[in-house]
């Protein structure tokens, strides 16, 4: 994996912006049965827009990174506008986008919002 991307992953893993135990809003849950990772995303939605967001869970660094980038983009946007992995990662994420096994980790947060009704 690209070293700059790896450094960014480690940074967000050690200093997450959105990881929080203060659960506010609707909860969306997903898990990766193959590795046991779980995530719960909490969204406060007003008039269809995401006002605030946070997540909890047991996640590997790439799954955490996926949640961090997703919530970076989603806050302030319509709930219907879930970005794609390519949108989230941009050109610097090419080495991750080409790795289908780890991309599944990255997309766990997206999966929680896309495939699951709020808890």
């Amino acid at each position: 994996m690209d070293k700059a991307l790896l450094s960014e992953i480690v940074y967000r893993y050690k200093f997450p912006k959105h990881r929080s135990h203060r659960a506010k809003g609707r909860a969306y849950h997903a898990e990766n049965l193959s590795c046991g990772d779980i995530i719960t995303i909490y969204l406060q939605i007003e008039k269809g827009y995401v006002k605030s967001a946070s997540y909890t869970g047991q996640l590997c660094s790439i799954a955490s990174f996926g949640a961090e980038l997703l919530l970076d983009k989603l806050i302030g946007q319509p709930i219907s506008s879930i970005p794609s992995s390519a949108d989230l990662l941009g050109a610097s994420g090419a080495s991750l986008l080409k790795n289908p096994v780890r991309l599944k980790c990255f997309e766990l947060a997206q999966l929680a919002l896309k495939n699951h009704s709020p808890l």
């Binding site: 994996m1 070293k3 790896l6 893993y13 590795c35 990772d37 996640l59 590997c60 660094s61 790439i62 780890r102 980790c105």
Partner: peptide, 12 residues
Amino acid sequence: IHPHDFALFLDN
């Protein structure tokens, strides 16, 4: 530390 994180760094 997640096993996949070890694998990621070891792979690097």
